[in-house]
């Protein structure tokens, strides 16, 4: 069980050249992720979802200040433990395709990732991970600039899964993909969860998160407002407890496409 308990985060930013001020970015973030679960975190861009992912894996920039606690199987997950687990038990699928080394063929990068994770036969593990995401033969041997956005995403996915990590954090893994590729990536995440891994899917896309997720946490302005089973998102959202989650559901173009009034959703003010 991976637990985030009342996580808050400030950034020290320069105001002008010299003076620094603490800018709060996360206020109150709490959620749990179980093995075998695909848990989606849904919210607006800029709400701090990626920061939560970076905090989980211990890769925050140096000017971040963290409060609250992270626990893995009941034990405190601090910086040392994060460094020890990162890439092995705890893997991040980053949002930016810039995470790929532009000078290295993709199957080598996956092999490296497997080796970093301490796998016995890294080359075979890489091969398997690449096959799992549907990259075989020539397409697995290309340089990053020869890959389409969808293929590059799948290479990142293979890098995270080659090491048999138990916990996967996927940060907007389907951004920029067309519907066919997006479905492929999401299904792959679902399969990983079904194989017993804990998968945290961070996305702004509620519609497609719902198609694979077990539970959904609605994130707004640095706060987790509500965690609900994916099945609660139906009808007019009566089963949802927060106004914001309901508004988010109803704003989908295939629901009401509704622009909520501020008095209906106090969080929007």
């Amino acid at each position: 069980m991976l637990e985030i308990d009342r996580l808050a985060l400030d950034f020290l930013r320069y105001r002008g050249l010299w003076r620094r001020a603490a800018i709060p970015c996360l206020h109150d973030v709490s959620l749990t992720l179980a093995r075998g679960e695909l848990h989606a975190v849904v919210g607006a861009s800029g709400a701090g979802k990626s920061l939560m992912a970076q905090a989980l894996i211990g890769l925050l920039p140096g000017n971040a200040r963290l409060r609250g606690s992270l626990r893995l199987d009941g034990e405190l997950l601090d910086a040392t433990r994060q460094a020890a687990l990162r890439g092995k038990h705890l893997a991040l699928i980053p949002q930016s395709l810039a995470a790929l080394d532009p000078l290295v063929r993709s199957h080598h990068q996956v092999t490296w990732a497997a080796r970093r994770a301490g796998v016995n036969a890294p080359r075979a593990a890489a091969e398997r991970a690449l096959t799992d995401v549907g990259l075989v033969g020539d397409s697995a041997r290309r340089y990053p600039h020869q890959l389409s956005g969808g293929m590059a995403r799948r290479v990142l996915l293979a890098m995270a899964t080659a090491g048999e990590a138990e916990w996967l954090i996927a940060d907007e893994p389907s951004v920029g993909l067309d519907p066919a590729h997006r479905a492929g990536v999401l299904e792959q995440l679902r399969r990983l969860a079904d194989a017993g891994k804990g998968v945290l899917l961070i996305t702004h896309d509620l519609r497609h998160a719902l198609s694979v997720a077990d539970r959904v946490t609605v994130f707004h302005a640095g706060t987790t407002l509500e965690t609900a089973p994916a099945t609660a998102f139906q009808g007019r959202g009566e089963a949802l407890s927060s106004d914001y989650a309901r508004a988010l559901w109803r704003a989908l173009p295939d629901n009401d496409f509704a622009r909520p009034a501020v008095h209906e959703v106090p969080q929007l003010a």
Partner: peptide
Amino acid sequence: MSTAPTPPLA
């Protein structure tokens, strides 16, 4: 990771 004191700003 537990509560850290507020960072020095000056």
